[in-house]
Nucleic acid binder design. Sequence first.
DNA 1: CATTATTATGCATAAATATACAATATTAAC
DNA 2: GTTAATATTGTATATTTATGCATAATAATG
Lengths: 160, 160
Amino acid sequence: MKTKKLRQGQIAKILEKEFVVTQHQLQKLLARAGHRVTQATLSRDMKELGVIYAPAPHGPYYYKISTVQTGPLIQQDLQNRFSKYVVNISRTDNLILIKTLPGEASGMARLIDELSMNGIKQTEVKEILGTIAGDDTILVIMKNKVNIPKIIKFLKGTTP
Amino acid sequence: MKTKKLRQGQIAKILEKEFVVTQHQLQKLLARAGHRVTQATLSRDMKELGVIYAPAPHGPYYYKISTVQTGPLIQQDLQNRFSKYVVNISRTDNLILIKTLPGEASGMARLIDELSMNGIKQTEVKEILGTIAGDDTILVIMKNKVNIPKIIKFLKGTTP
DNA sequence: CATTATTATGCATAAATATACAATATTAAC
DNA sequence: GTTAATATTGTATATTTATGCATAATAATG
């Protein structure tokens, strides 16, 4: 059903430009673009599109296309890269040293950070204090050394 | 009035751990932590805290502490850094070359990108195609050269 | 202190969003 | 094609969130 995809694309486009505060407002804007649907449909579209509802500083909540991936997708991406780009993993005390192919380290580190900050229900990654990355090396600093094996398994995707 | 600050701190802490889907749920969790308030108060707190309401992939919407700054704050930050760290600005055609103090370039470039992607109602930054940064140089690529002076003014904060 | 100004909160309710269910449309299988 | 299975949407409504107004709590001022 292509109308749906088209409409959702249009919604994304609108939300990039306009300051949309309610689904009713969006409904009107959409109608102007030729898509005539009810609020109920928009409610469903929003969820599917991953649209977030965020407060403008000192302003009202408004709808906004999310640029940040949410938890599960990042995790998938990260584990995918692990299998492709990681050359070696070593550890001492509460540190994990991950050797990657050239240029991959900082991108992967960012994903790890993102996950540790935004990961929901992932107790593993909450144990990560932070990461530092060079060009082909990631240093992961843990809050506590006991959880290191669990984390390594998790990052590798052994525990899906 | 400290109870409010305390409560909001507690809210932030709860949202980091728990998957909170409604304000009622939060109300209960909060009560368990000793803060007894109505849903109305929570609604206000959420906005003040900048909590966003985001859909979990294939799951329901849930409340989530925002890690990404929203528009106006970024802009302020960026203009602040401009005044402190920018050494020189030059341009040719549709390119702007910004020379900064060592190490500042990539951070500032990220802010510019963030703004150009998430900026609401800021037509100026929408004209930015992208940025590339080294250690002390930012290259800003514009969609169109006619808007360059406007952008430069904007970044400098001359147009607040 | 007492008094005034400011901020925070609850109550009641308005406004907005999500959803169960029924009706339609779309796609797949034959 | 026809029929069965799946997906999309609207209607009506339940659920949830936001807010106007009144009150209480806190802070500022003399």
